[in-house]
Design a protein around this nucleic acid. Structure first.
Length: 575
DNA sequence: ACAAAATGCGGCC
DNA sequence: TGGCCGCCCTTTTG
C-alpha cells in the first residue's frame, strides 16, 4: 500500500486549473498537463486514481476533483450542453406547435374561439410571430448550411494510416496466479523541468551515408528507375517575364486535382519543396519526426506514388533541391544533421553534423556546393561540400539571441540576410569574424519575432518578411549596403497556435514581385499577393482544402503550387 | 459519436 | 533571465 500512498501525496501537490481568465473552461489537455504550486485547498482531498501508465505517471479523474457532488457545481461545458439541449427541445416543441397551428390541428370548441382561453390565444399568436421571425432570419436555411460545414473526411491517398505492426507480447501471468508475494513497487522520481523522453527516439542517426530504403515499402524494394531519370532531367531555368494579367489568369486556372491531396509523411509538415523537373510534378516534404517523403504525382507505384524515408530523427526544418545537381535534395533537421539525398547513389550522405540544433540553410553559390547553415542560437556556418572532413566548418556569432531564417542574395551571393528576433540584418560573408559581426544594413520595424525573411528570387531587390506581430512586410533592398526602406506592410493573422507549423510568406520563383502564404481564414485558403499588398488570388476548395496549409511553395517553372498541412498531407494545385 | 491527448513556442513579467 | 501563460489551430486514439 505504501506505493499507492505516495501516489496520493504526489498527486496532491498538483493544482488543476480549470478556468482561464475569461472563466472559460480550459481544455482537458491543459487540465491534465498543467501543474502549479501547491494549494492548501486540494491538499486534503483524496483524488480518485483513474489509471496508472507504464511511465509511472498518475492520471486523475479531474472532473471529480473540481466538480464534486459536494460543491453541487456542474462542469461549465456540461452546463452549456444542457442549456443548448433545452433550447433545442423548446425549438422542436415550438415547431411542432407551429405545425399544429398550420394544420389547424387544435381542439375546437363550440364557442367560436375554438374553446381556447385568452392565454392560449395569446400563446398561439406568439407562435405565429415566432414563426414569422424564424423564417425572416432564415434559420432553417442556416441549419442546412451548418450541416454542409461539417468537414469531409481527409484524403486517404498516400501513406496508409495503420501500417505499423503490432508488437507481439509474451503471455503474462499475474503474481497472484503464480502464488507469489506481491512486489514492492516504487514510483520513478518526478521529472524535473522539461519531460525526459525515451532516448531512443531522440538519438541521432549514425553518421555516414544512409541507404535510401523506403520505410513504407517491403524490404529489398528497388527505387523506381523513373526516379533518377526524372531527377537528372535538364532543368535549365527559364526566366519568364510574365505580366501581371497573364499571371493572374494562370493562377485562376489552377486547382486541386481529384487525387491532388496525398499523405506524404506521417506527421506534421515542417518543410517542403518542388523538384525543378517539368515533365512530371515531383515533391518532397519533411515532418516532425525526421521523415522525408517523396511524392511523384500520378506515379503508379504503391501508396499513390509516395516513398517515405527516415534520414533524421527530429523536425526537418528546411529542405531544397540542388539546382545545379537536381538528383540531390538537401535536408536539414533540428537534430543537428544536414544530409544530401542523392537518388543516383540511392543514399542520404552527411553534409554537416553538429551537436547543436540546426534551424535553416541556404545555397551560397550557383553550383550549390557552398551552403550557409544557421543554428537556433544565432550562429552561422559556411559549409563547402567539396572539402571533406570537419575543417570546413566556421561558426560566426552573428547575434547571441535567436535565428529563424537565412537567405542569400540571388546575384551578389556574398550578401545574406538573417532574421534575428526583431530585426533582419544583412551581412557580407567576405568580412565575417568569429564574433560581434557588423551588419551592412538592417531592416527595422518588426515589433515581435520574425519567422522568415527572403530575398526576392530574380534580382534580390526586395526582402519579404513574416513576423509574429501579424504583418508581412516588403523592404526595398536594391542598394543592399545602404538604407533599405520599408515598402509595404500587410496585415495577416499568424496565430497558428500549438499544433500547426508557423506560416511563412514565400516568393514565387517565377515572378519577382508575387508571393504565396497560407491563411487561418475560414473557409481555409492559400493566398497569393502582389508586393503592393493586393490579393491576386485565394485558392479555396470546399472538397479538398479544409485544413491550414502552413507550408507553401511554388514550382520554379510550371504553374503548380504545393501546400503542406499538419497531418502530413501535401495539396497540389496545378492547371 | 465523442472526448481527450498529442514529445511547443513566442511573449511577457 | 527563468518560468509562467496562452494559443483555441488539427489529428489520432480509445
Amino acid at each position: 500500500m505504501s506505493s499507492i500512498h505516495s501516489c496520493e501525496v504526489r498527486v496532491c501537490r498538483w493544482n488543476f486549473v480549470l478556468e482561464d481568465s475569461n472563466n472559460f473552461p480550459r481544455k482537458c489537455t491543459e487540465m491534465t498537463t498543467r501543474r502549479t504550486k501547491p494549494v492548501d485547498t486540494v491538499k486534503n482531498q483524496t483524488p480518485e486514481v483513474h489509471s496508472t501508465r507504464s511511465s509511472g505517471r498518475v492520471r486523475l479523474a479531474p472532473k471529480r476533483l473540481q466538480y464534486s457532488p459536494e460543491t453541487r457545481e456542474e462542469h461549465p461545458r456540461k452546463k452549456q450542453k444542457a442549456k443548448s439541449q433545452t433550447e433545442k427541445e423548446s425549438l422542436t416543441n415550438k415547431l411542432k406547435y407551429e405545425e399544429d397551428v398550420e394544420n389547424d390541428d387544435v381542439e375546437h370548441n363550440s364557442d367560436g374561439r375554438g374553446g381556447l382561453s385568452a392565454y392560449e390565444l395569446e400563446r398561439l399568436e406568439n407562435i405565429r410571430q415566432n414563426k414569422a421571425f424564424l423564417s425572416s432570419i432564415n434559420l432553417f436555411q442556416a441549419t442546412e448550411d451548418l450541416k454542409q460545414l461539417t468537414r469531409p473526411k481527409p484524403s486517404q491517398r498516400g501513406l496508409r494510416p495503420h501500417s505499423s505492426v503490432k508488437e507481439v507480447l509474451p503471455p503474462r501471468k499475474s503474481l497472484r496466479l503464480q502464488k507469489k508475494e506481491a512486489e514492492m513497487l516504487t514510483l520513478p522520481p518526478e521529472p524535473r523541468g522539461t519531460l525526459v523522453y525515451e532516448q531512443s527516439s531522440t538519438i541521432k542517426k549514425p553518421t555516414g551515408p544512409l541507404p535510401m530504403n523506403p520505410i513504407n515499402m517491403e524490404e529489398g524494394f528497388q527505387l523506381p528507375a523513373e526516379l533518377p531519370e526524372l531527377c537528372s532531367e535538364d532543368t535549365k531555368e527559364r526566366k519568364m517575364k510574365l505580366d501581371l494579367k497573364t499571371y493572374c489568369s494562370a493562377l485562376k486556372s489552377m486547382a486541386i486535382a481529384d487525387d491532388g491531396v496525398v499523405k506524404v509523411v506521417k506527421d506534421r509538415i515542417f518543410s517542403a519543396a518542388f523538384h525543378p523537373c517539368s515533365s512530371r510534378l515531383l515533391m518532397a516534404a519533411g515532418d516532425k519526426w525526421g521523415k522525408v517523403g517523396l511524392w511523384n504525382f500520378g506515379a503508379d507505384w504503391d501508396d499513390d506514388g509516395v516513398l517515405l524515408f527516415e534520414p533524421h530523427t527530429r523536425p526537418v526544418g528546411c529542405m531544397a533541391f540542388s539546382t545545379a545537381h537536381p538528383t540531390q535534395l538537401l535536408t536539414l533537421s533540428y537534430d543537428g544533421s544536414l544530409r544530401c539525398m542523392d537518388v543516383e547513389k540511392a543514399v542520404f550522405d552527411d553534409v554537416y553534423d553538429i551537436d547543436d540544433d540546426l534551424k535553416t540553410f541556404a545555397f551560397m553559390s550557383h553550383d550549390c556546393s557552398t551552403l550557409l547553415v544557421g543554428n537556433w542560437y544565432g550562429e552561422v556556418a559556411i559549409v563547402d561540400r567539396r572539402t571533406p572532413g570537419n575543417s570546413h566548418k566556421s561558426l560566426h556569432s552573428v547575434d547571441p539571441k535567436t535565428l529563424r531564417c537565412v537567405s542569400v542574395h540571388p546575384l551578389q551571393m556574398q550578401y545574406f540576410a538573417v532574421a534575428e528576433s526583431r530585426v533582419v540584418s544583412i551581412y557580407d560573408s567576405r568580412s565575417l569574424k568569429k564574433t560581434k559581426n557588423c551588419a551592412v544594413s538592417q531592416l527595422h520595424g518588426h515589433t515581435k519575432s520574425i519567422s522568415s525573411a527572403y530575398f526576392s528570387p530574380c534580382t534580390g531587390n526586395r526582402i519579404l518578411t513574416t513576423c509574429m506581430d501579424d504583418h508581412i512586410r516588403i523592404y526595398d533592398t536594391s542598394s543592399v549596403n545602404t538604407e533599405c526602406p520599408l515598402l509595404k506592410s500587410i496585415r495577416h493573422d499568424m496565430h497558428t497556435g500549438r499544433w500547426l507549423s508557423k506560416l511563412s510568406a514565400v516568393w514565387d520563383p517565377k515572378k519577382e514581385d508575387c508571393f504565396v502564404v497560407g491563411s487561418m481564414m475560414r473557409p481555409r485558403r492559400v493566398q497569393v499577393f502582389h508586393e503592393s499588398g493586393q490579393v491576386l488570388h485565394s485558392f479555396m476548395d470546399s472538397e479538398n482544402l479544409n485544413t491550414v496549409l502552413s507550408v507553401t511553395a511554388f514550382h520554379p517553372t510550371k504553374n503548380a503550387l504545393l501546400g503542406g498541412n499538419s497531418s502530413g498531407r501535401l495539396h497540389l494545385f496545378s492547371s
